[in-house]
Nucleic acid binder design. Structure first.
Lengths: 115, 115
DNA sequence: CCCTATTATTTAGAAAGACTGGGTAGTGTG
DNA sequence: CACACTACCCAGTCTTTCTAAATAATAGGG
């Protein structure tokens, strides 16, 4: 009966999650969104309105690069923007993973076990 | 070399941490602050300007109750406001702990291990 | 050939939570 | 009496996410 993860509790960890997803393979925004949802095994509830700004943020910070895909293949929809993690992004991802571990340890220690 | 936990990454988990601390023993704001810092074993960096609003939030939500301490004992400083977790707060703490577990599982799965 | 469903991107505005950087107050100690 | 120490309080700001759309492009059905 756990609530879906969204909003406040996600704060600041989304960027690392996006980098982790893009580290496995390049992808466009919608793709990243679907992969986040599937890797989160349904426990993650993310809005496009949160994801795209996150991608812009990462691009602006030089952690991912982006290019427009040539729409040669026959498919529906507008041109897609393909994101790729940069070397700087990979370093940040490592740092983000360390921060995540640290965060889990410290907060977990305070929150503690149920009685 | 982990960064101290503060700001964005804390978002939404502070309330549960405060409830967890108050579940062990009642305490005034400054006390809660010191106990958070000590239980976080130096890994936590929290400002009073963040803690007190959190306490008001919890009080307003009926998760903690507060009373002014009679300043009988000889000590320095102004009157202290003693916070105590309520029954509703205890239920919320349990829920918060479940949410924390869930959060760690889901985000951890996405963030994954360093290669 | 239009209409709709699907895929994908974009954005404006609001809300929430924590931060910065102070200030106020009371009392023991030198 | 000045000062350090303890404790509390607050205004304004920043960042991140959410809400709630609009827009774009095309395949496929009728």
């Amino acid at each position: 009966m756990s609530e879906l993860i969204s909003g406040k509790s996600l704060h600041g960890h989304l960027d690392t999650m996006v980098l982790a997803v893009l580290d496995k393979a390049d992808g466009h925004g919608f793709d990243v969104w679907r992969r986040l949802e599937s890797e989160g095994q349904g426990g993650l509830k993310l809005k496009e309105g949160s994801l795209y700004p996150a991608l812009y943020r990462l691009e602006k910070a030089g952690l991912v690069s982006a290019r427009w895909e040539d729409n040669e293949t026959k498919r529906r929809g507008p041109r897609r923007r393909i994101y790729k993690i940069t070397r700087k992004g990979k370093r940040q991802l490592e740092k983000g993973r360390e921060e995540w571990e640290h965060f889990v340890n410290v907060v977990g220690r305070v929150v503690g076990a149920p009685a």
